[in-house]
Amino acid sequence: MSLLITGGTGFAMSVVAREWLEREPGARAVILDRAALDAAARAWFEPVRERLTVVEGDVREPAGWADELDRHEISAIVHGATVTPISRGSAEEEARVHPEALMPAKIVDVNLMGTVQLLEWARQRARVRRFVYVSSGSVYRHHGPDWSREPLPEDGYVAPLTLYGISKFAAEMVVNRYADLFGLSALSVRLSSIYGPMDRATESRNFRHVPHRVAQMALDGETIRPNSLAPVGDYLHSVDAAHAILALVDAQRPRYRHYNVASGVAVSIGDIIGWAAEKVPQLRYEVSHADHANVVQDPQLATGMWGAYDISRIERDTSWRPRAGREAFHDYMDWLAAGRL
Rank of each mutant, 00 (worst) to 15 (best):
L3R: 01
I5V: 13
G10L: 01
V16F: 00
R18L: 00
R18M: 03
E24A: 10
P25R: 02
R34C: 03
A40K: 08
A43K: 14
F45T: 00
P47Y: 12
L52T: 00
R60E: 13
W65I: 07
R71N: 10
H72C: 02
S75F: 12
I86Q: 12
A95H: 12
A95W: 12
A95T: 11
A95I: 13
V97S: 14
K106C: 04
V116E: 12
A122G: 03
R123I: 04
R129P: 05
S136E: 07
Y140P: 04
R141F: 09
H143P: 02
H143R: 15
P145E: 11
W147E: 10
S148N: 07
P153G: 11
P153F: 06
V158A: 12
V158D: 06
L163Q: 01
V175S: 03
A186G: 03
S188V: 08
S192T: 14
S193I: 11
S193P: 02
Y195V: 15
P197G: 02
A201Q: 14
E203T: 14
R208G: 06
A215R: 01
A218I: 10
D220L: 06
G221C: 13
Y235L: 09
V249L: 05
R253M: 13
Y259C: 02
V261D: 00
V265Y: 01
V265N: 04
A266Q: 02
A276K: 04
A302W: 13
A302R: 15
W306T: 12
Y309C: 07
D310R: 13
I314S: 03
S319E: 15
E327V: 14
D334V: 13
G339H: 05
